[in-house]
Amino acid sequence: MDFLRPAGWEEALAAKAEHPTAVPIAGGTDVMVEINFDHRRPEYLLDLTRVAELAEWEATDRTVRLGAGVPYTRIIEELRTELPGLALAAHTVGSPQIRNRGTVGGNLGAASPAGDAHPALLAAGAEVEVASVRGTRRIPVEEFFTGVKRHVLEPDELIRAVHIRRADGPQQFSKVGTRNAMVIAVCAFAVALHPRTRTVRTGIGSAAPTPVRAREAEEFLGAALDEGGFWDSGAPLDPSVVRRFVELCAGACRPIDDVRGTAAYRRHAVGVMARRTLGWTWEAYREGEGRTAQCA
């Protein structure tokens, strides 16, 4: 095994081009577990913690460009306003120690269906910026995952950043685990209201081979909100609308039975979380969060 320590981004890309089998390591919260448990013996470890630009984020009017190496703790502390859904999700990751090390870039790279950041990214709307010595491309997060622990990266590519839409309305994230802390998701759900575009987006974790959006549910709810004038009136949601949204969210799952939970429970729990998180976000919207901007 060789340990590569690029000092900057260009050097990292060059190293990855030269050693396409190199396994990138940032917080180590996935890679080191695999090495410690002898599940993986990469030829090269590519340490990205020295690449300073990866640990930075910058916000523009509409988006936050989140460096792939920004640890969860900083997201919780620094980006609560811009990225409330992701900050909530970040707060459910592992333990404080893990949140101090783990990164969204690492979460994407591991591409676990249970990755906590994924549903929040899907709901907020995000693009993954990946790069190689050949150039840079941006991949919508919903197109990033191709299967269980698989993604679209080419062997010479590295994740540089995630461009996440700044919240223009309330966002929520919920995750079911069988413990009150330090737990991998049995399933997770994120919802984001986007008053500016009058859309609703969702993200579901750990209930399908990849993180998924409940697109039908989004479209149904979007249409119902539009047609009913809810965005303007801020009226309470019709229970039948909520019910249908919940059904469609649960229907978007393709869960399995495993040691963490049953498929039937996952589907059920996603429905419950969909109802609750929609309730919380809509309540917040009615109370003014995101509406002022909308009315102005």
């Binding site: 180590g28 470890l45 340490d47 893990i98």
Partner: peptide, 15 residues
């Protein structure tokens, strides 16, 4: 300065 799990830090990362 940051509390971390030392088991998840590759030795080379601590350089």
């Amino acid at each position: 300065g940051v509390p971390v799990c030392a088991c998840l830090v590759a030795a080379g990362q601590a350089e």
